[in-house]
Design a protein around this nucleic acid. Structure first.
Length: 409
RNA sequence: GGGUGGAUACCCAAGCGGCCAAAGGGGCCAGACUGUAAAUCUGGUGGCACUGCCUUCGCAGGUUCGAAUCCUGCUCCACCCA
């Protein structure tokens, strides 16, 4: 095990707050002295399918703990997901069914496994304990907190001020999350800054159960690809860990310049001196972003795929077609006797546009080109002679090769 | 239980008898440009083989030549008082 100073240096990177810091030091020192790993908790609610880079911020921290010899304890919040975490939300979360949650939970682990070494980690579902609770148990838990404490939270306070609803079940969320820490005897819990309240609730609960309270370690909230709002599924500004290399890279490049430092700090291991050099004035931000994009794609798909995605992106930006063009079948019966089809119908049939109305607009706007010579189609009604292997493009990103199927007329 | 305010397209939000497929903003799509799927600017954004037709403004009825707009009932939501 590395000594305390070394561990701290690694663990402090990109961390917002360690509460209380002195206690953390003590725990760490004792851990090194006694050769006893810390139990580091991270909870994730299976509320959606996609694990995105925002989640990877604490997950990567958890991995660092693992690599330093500590124990990663992952809580799959299959019960808390039914409640919905109110943290940082200005409205109540939509309700999930138990079936959705279970299905998501399964999916989650596979994705989390891209970051955490699951063979060395403990995984718990909080339904394992909460599902056995009686109403009396719930009441017992609720007497640990007052309405004043709850409504002091910024997210609730804001909603109350805005005359938006705050439901009682949401108030239970931090208590449930806190109880998870009791169940697994957490030494440290990781979370976003908005989680601080919930992370601290656990301390009270643990103490009430005669346990040593956990340390709260909070990480900044990663901004999404819009560069403004937090990365989140519902905002559609996220990069999923399960996405294809090209998509991940492309989305990375679409992130504005400002949050690049945050991305480097939180999502890569690149030494900060190197980050400073890349972000220095005079260095083309595009190049820095490319390094960033490659580094992130490499984490999930390997160096080779990352390099390929970057190359592909450059080509695409230069207006060239990608290496691999997906093939889409087109039934011969859609064509007229001369083997032609109106442009707008073609786009609809190939699935490049969702409706013929939309297809017409796109063609009108000059967004459609065909063939290797990129002939632009301006009239939606122009009948396109479709040969097998014809390339059809809409904009820069939608590109398809036609495969004619069906028997000759 | 009483009161008040709501429900409009992907989201927010105007509209309050015809000029409404419905303002504006966001998002998204396309074009120009280039540092890129950034920024900026421009156009588009219900459906249909489309110079027209069809279906939308919580639901169901009604008034009217004509309803997102008026009336009745219903459903749902929020806030306030108790």
């Amino acid at each position: 095990m590395k000594d305390v100073a070394e561990q701290l240096q690694i663990l402090r990177r990109g961390v917002e707050q360690i509460v209380p810091e002195a206690e953390f030091l003590k725990k760490l020192e004792r851990s090194v002295r006694e050769g006893r790993p810390l139990r580091v908790k991270y909870g994730i609610d299976p509320t959606g399918i996609d694990v995105h880079l925002g989640h990877t911020v604490p997950l990567r921290k958890l991995r660092q703990f693992q690599d330093l010899g500590h124990t990663a304890v992952i809580i799959i919040g299959n019960y808390t997901a039914l409640v919905g975490d109110p943290s940082g939300r200005d409205e109540t979360r939509a309700r999930l069914t138990k079936e959705q949650v279970d299905a998501n939970a399964c999916d989650y682990l596979a994705q989390v496994g891209k970051i955490i070494d699951l063979d060395r980690a403990e995984v718990h579902h909080n339904g394992d304990w909460f599902s056995k609770w009686s109403f009396l148990d719930v009441l017992d838990l609720t007497r640990r907190m007052t309405l004043g404490q709850i409504s002091a939270r910024e997210d609730f306070a804001k909603r109350i001020a805005d005359e938006k609803p705050v439901y009682l079940h949401e108030c239970l969320y931090p208590l449930m999350q806190g109880w998870d820490s009791v169940e697994i005897r957490a030494d440290v819990e990781l979370g976003g800054t908005e989680q601080l309240f919930s992370l601290l609730v656990a301390r009270d609960l643990q103490q009430s159960q005669g346990q040593e309270p956990q340390i709260a370690m909070t990480m900044p909230i990663l901004v999404g690809t819009d560069g403004v709002r937090r990365m989140g599924k519902s905002l559609g500004n996220y990069i999923g860990v399960g996405e294809a290399p090209e998509n991940q890279f492309g989305k990375m490049m679409s992130v504005p310049d400002e949050p690049m430092r945050q991305y480097f700090t939180l999502l890569t291991e690149l030494p900060m001196t190197e980050v400073d050099r890349l972000l220095a004035p005079g260095v083309n931000p595009r190049d820095a972003k490319e390094v960033l994009g490659k580094s992130i794609v490499a984490q999930y798909h390997g160096e080779a795929a990352a390099a390929r995605a970057a190359g592909e992106f450059r080509r695409r930006a230069a207006g060239e077609d990608p290496d691999e063009i997906p093939t889409v079948p087109l039934d011969r019966s859609k064509l007229d006797p001369e083997g032609r089809i109106p442009a707008f119908v073609l786009l609809k049939e190939l699935g490049l546009e969702s409706s013929t109305s939309n297809a017409r607009r796109v063609v009108d706007g000059g967004g459609m080109t065909i063939d290797v010579d990129r002939r632009s189609i301006a009239d939606p009604k122009e009948r396109i002679a479709v040969a097998d292997g014809l390339i059809v493009r809409v904009g820069k990103r939608k590109i398809v090769r036609v495969k004619i199927v069906g028997s000759p007329a």
